[in-house]
Amino acid sequence: MSSLDIVSAGYSGFASLAPGASGTQRAGYHFQGNARTTSSTHHFKGGFNGNWQTTDTVDVAARVFAPCGEERNLDINTELRVERGTSSPSATSFIEMDSTDGRIKTVYHMAWKRCR
Rank of each mutant, 00 (worst) to 15 (best):
Ser2Leu: 08
Ser3Glu: 02
Ile6Glu: 06
Ala9Asp: 05
Ala9Ser: 02
Gly10Asn: 12
Tyr11Gln: 05
Gly13His: 07
Phe14Pro: 07
Ala15Cys: 06
Ser16His: 00
Leu17Cys: 02
Pro19Asp: 06
Ser22Cys: 08
Thr24Ile: 11
Gln25Ile: 10
Ala27Val: 12
Gly28Lys: 03
Tyr29Glu: 08
Tyr29Arg: 01
Tyr29Gly: 03
Phe31Val: 00
Thr41Met: 07
His42Ile: 07
Lys45Gln: 12
Gly46Asp: 04
Gly47Ile: 03
Phe48Met: 01
Asn49Gly: 10
Gly50Val: 04
Asn51Cys: 10
Asn51Phe: 09
Asn51Pro: 12
Thr57Ala: 01
Val60Ile: 00
Ala61Lys: 12
Val64Met: 08
Phe65Thr: 02
Pro67Glu: 00
Pro67Lys: 02
Pro67Phe: 06
Pro67Ile: 04
Gly69Thr: 03
Gly69Ile: 01
Gly69His: 08
Arg72Asn: 08
Leu74Ile: 01
Asp75Phe: 01
Asn77His: 00
Asn77Ala: 10
Leu80Ser: 12
Leu80Thr: 10
Arg81Lys: 14
Arg81Phe: 07
Arg81Gly: 00
Glu83Ala: 15
Glu83Cys: 08
Arg84Cys: 12
Arg84Phe: 14
Ser88Ile: 05
Ser90Cys: 11
Ala91Glu: 11
Phe94Thr: 04
Phe94Asp: 03
Glu96Trp: 00
Met97Val: 02
Ser99Ala: 13
Ser99Asp: 14
Ser99Thr: 15
Asp101Gly: 13
Val107Lys: 14
Met110Ala: 15
Trp112Asp: 14
Lys113His: 09
Arg114Tyr: 14
